[in-house]
Amino acid sequence: MLRVIFTLGSVLMLIAELPIQSAFAETPIEVLATFKVEAAGTPGFQEFSATRGENFFKTKHNHNLSCSTCHTDNPAAQGKHSETDKIIKPLAPAANEERFTDMKKVAKWFKRNCNDVLDRECTAQEKGDVITYLLTIHK
């Protein structure tokens, strides 16, 4: 009897854990590791740096735009689309647990936003620096 209860309990615990395990495809650390593998193979690679990432994030590149134009200077705060005013949820994982948990989504948005802000795709070094910076942000 005890064994049945125990088994039943384990099954229930397993079921309870399932949604947590399958909620996100990746963790921000895993996403960052993917960019590190990519960046390490390029000439002039430097260890990812939060300071460089912050600088890149806040610097105006082309068209007088920076990452912070829409995401604001505080990545833990809500942002706003510069054209449509649509609310953008916080970018820092500490403030929004969904961020950087789906590599496909990460790739889609880096491609779009870098093309808009820099007229080119960002390098793995730049992406890694920015994520490293975002991971240092606390709520």
Partner: peptide, 12 residues
């Protein structure tokens, strides 16, 4: 979509 009213909105 890659030039969607001035923005890159490309999709897979």
């Amino acid at each position: 979509l890659d030039k969607h009213f001035g923005s890159d909105a490309s999709l897979d």
